[in-house]
Design a protein around this nucleic acid. Structure first.
Length: 480
RNA sequence: GGCGGCAUAGCCAAGUGGUAAGGCAGCGGUCUGCAAAACCGUUAUUCUCCGGUUCAAAUCCGGAUGCCGCCUCCA
């Protein structure tokens, strides 16, 4: 099955055909850098990270642009509140964004431009829109005239006449239509500003994306993505600006991800339930967060709560347990060396080709895991080379899928060690005490003193320590 | 008021015309000195409800109920 993508513009799944065969040009709206990133940002960034990885894994040459909007009212407000410059605010949160996304194992985009790096492009487009009569300037501000763009509303499915003028829009006498939006804003004293044909000022919201997208990727691009909330007005306005300026379709496929609720409630500042990525990372493995984010379809709303995070964590552990087991059987755990596309990879691609159905893809991962465990259960104590080869091929598929989802990137040993360490730090139990008890138990077992051995097991259980007796010795894990 | 979405087992979640993936939890079993891990079996005659179309519907159409989102520079 060829790749199909649900296009917000047409409200249908469509076969994916790029402007230039084999090449994908995609642009995803990055953050306005005025505050720390929350779990909702993580969802959007991780989803498009996976989309880019998948397109590359299936042979596309992908140019992925994710911007930073680093000049904006919210940044200026933040700067005024905290008494630092807008640039400092932006720098701080760009730095945080990278810290958070690196921790979540998000790959860097091909290009990560900043709005302030494209002021010339912005001015050029705004001038052009004025020349074409699609925009007008008033007192140093420039507005886009929505009535001049006949397709206005085609993305969000709204009609200007339906949008009850003035209902929830500030009435501004200087605007010809209440939905006209600012392309350029005259600066007030102390605000960031650039010279322009309309006087000193700064870009309005939407225009920076049109500028960066067209200058870095071209006037028609393949994919433009972002959160659902951006459909209106942000993306609607981007279409208006870009298509009015260039007279070409702006974007072929619009992709929008759904939102995250917290305990069934919308995240909002007023409810105080904004979950920052850095806080979630304190207690949850980054790959478990990715697993949680990808376990539902990207357009569905999802709920964040302890239960689903525990599920994701348990599932991740299950997969690393499997990898550890395969590695104990395989002499040299082949990595990308065995590049053959096995059954699991092909089935995974089938799922992903259906509008990036990661939920189904993850289901296939678990099926593969079960099949591999079963295979190993049935192995003789000294498995043949043919057995090992089959296992290695399966393992290779699993890791290849993992490299698209951004999971299973650690060695199992490393994974279990860091998880253990993290839980130990939280529980304040001395590992030396645990090791000592395990030794005592080993001796009790040697002398077949089962009562003593079980007593120690119980004692350790009370300390959140679970024992696992293996042929080559006893290992231990911390619970939750 | 306008636009849109969702409703599948105790929980999470795929499935958009051909007879209900997967995960968690539960129960029974294999393995184990006991466990753990792993595996096997089992758990929705049925997809919010009512009509309709069809040889065939969780899937399409109409209606009802419930929940949610956007229309405020929120991912």
């Amino acid at each position: 099955m060829p790749l199909t993508i649900y296009n917000t513009l047409t409200k249908k799944k469509e076969p994916f055909e790029t402007v230039e065969p084999g090449k994908v040009r995609m642009y995803v709206c990055g953050p306005t850098v005025y505050d720390s990133c929350h779990i909702g940002h993580a969802r959007s960034v991780v989803i498009f990270d996976v989309i880019a990885r998948y397109l590359r894994a299936t042979g596309y040459d992908v140019t992925y642009v994710r911007n930073f909007t680093d000049v904006d009212d919210k940044i200026i407000n933040r700067a005024n509140q905290t008494g630092v410059s807008s640039q400092d605010v932006a720098e701080k949160y760009i730095r945080e964004f990278y810290e958070d996304m690196d921790a979540l194992k998000v790959e860097r985009a091909t290009l990560e431009p900043r709005a302030t790096g494209h002021i010339d492009d912005i001015i050029r487009i705004v001038s052009r829109l004025i020349e074409k009569g699609m925009a007008y300037s008033v007192d140093g501000d420039v507005y886009f005239a929505v009535e001049k763009f006949s397709d206005y509303g085609k993305l969000s499915g709204r009609k200007l006449e339906d949008m009850e003028a003035g209902a929830r829009v500030d009435v501004d006498e200087r605007k010809r239509n209440p939905f006209d939006f600012a392309l350029w804003k005259a600066s007030k004293p102390g605000e960031p500003e650039w010279d322009s044909p309309w006087g000193k000022g700064r870009p309005g919201w939407h225009i920076e994306c049109s500028a960066m997208s067209s200058s870095l990727l071209g006037e028609t691009i393949d994919i433009h993505g972002g959160g659902k909330d951006l459909i209106f007005p942000h993306h609607e306005n981007e279409i208006a600006q870009s298509e009015a300026a260039f007279d070409k379709p702006f974007v072929r496929y619009w992709i929008h991800n759904g939102f995250i609720n917290i305990e069934s409630e919308k995240m909002s500042k007023s409810l105080g339930n904004f979950l920052l990525i850095r806080d979630v990372l304190k207690n949850t493995h980054p790959e478990a967060i990715r697993l949680f984010l990808l376990a539902s379809h990207y357009r569905s709303p999802i709920d964040y709560n302890d239960r689903v995070i525990q599920d994701a964590s348990a599932n991740l552990e299950k997969l690393y347990t499997l990898l550890m087991r395969t590695d104990s059987i395989l002499d040299s755990p082949s990595r990308a060396s065995d590049r053959k596309n096995g059954e699991w990879w092909l089935r995974f691609c089938d799922a992903m080709n259906d509008d990036f159905n990661t939920a189904r893809g993850i289901g296939i991962v678990y099926e593969a895991a079960r099949a591999m465990n079963r295979m190993m259960d049935e192995f003789p104590s000294d498995p043949s080379d043919a057995d090992k080869k089959t296992l290695a091929t399966n393992r290779c598929d699993l890791l290849k899928i993992g490299s698209v989802l951004g999971i299973l990137t650690e060695s199992p040993g490393q994974y279990f060690e860091t998880e253990k360490q993290k839980k130990l730090n939280q529980s304040a139990i001395d590992p030396a005490v645990i090791e000592k008890l395990i030794q005592d138990r080993a001796e009790a077992r040697k002398s077949r003193n089962w009562q003593q051995a079980d007593a120690i097991r119980k004692q350790l259980e009370a300390m959140q320590v679970i024992l696992e007796d293996r042929p080559d010795g006893t290992i231990w894990k911390m619970t939750s």
